[in-house]
Amino acid sequence: MKTRHELTEILDFIAEYATYLLGSGVHTSRAIRNSQRIGEALGVDIQLSSFQRSTILTVRDDESGEAITRVVKIPALPISFERNSDLSALSWDALDEHLPLAEIRRRYALLIEKPRIDPIFVLVTVGLANASFCRLFGGDWTAMAIVFTSTLVGFAAKQRMQAHGVNHFLIFIVAAFMASLCASSALRFDCTAETALATSVLFLVPGVPLINGVIDIVEGHILIGCSRLINALLLIICIAIGLAATLLMVKDSLL
């Protein structure tokens, strides 16, 4: 049997944990499963339902029948698979090692403090990745080099704008425009210019929300799945707007 104070503490932790997971790009059923696993380790029943921007969760003590509910906002965090793995593993550890709440909290704080991947490393690997992508679509070496450079420009712009907290739709439009404008220099060379232009913006494609959306829908969380897909679709439209601006400028040499 838990006191109301203990129950509130558990609820506050689970609220933080679940919204952190949902904010960093974990699909809904995993976030629910992990939270319930921690709840089980602490001896309470947890139910939660989630929307795009907020989560409703209830903690119930089975012995006393007391229940507390909270609505929590989901923070906008960068997507992180590392947090996804670590926090999922934490939920299993909590269950298997019967950790008390204080210990779970301590490990949680350590895990979310872990440094992220170095942005410069990400920048270079994204450049290489987009160049290889160009190759997969049949681009030649000149096109690959151009795509590499334009990806560096576009992605660096995106990183800088994100650091300054610019609206993410604007970020996508501007980054797509800059990357494709650089890539349109391929028209001056004797190479597969259309492939270069097409590939240059693909580093922006929001793959994680797209796939998470489909996963959520097939797992029965249809509402949030659709919200994720619509969100991803908006970003794709932004990419298309940025690309379209370039295409309108150079379309005569493409036809």
């Binding site: 997507i79 991947i117 990400v122 290489l128 990745a129 987009n130 290889s132 997969l136």
Partner: peptide
């Protein structure tokens, strides 16, 4: 090339 592309695009999501 697919492997290089996957590593790079994956790196954006901090695996």
């Amino acid at each position: 090339f697919a492997a290089v592309a996957a590593i790079g695009f994956g790196a954006i999501s901090d695996p």
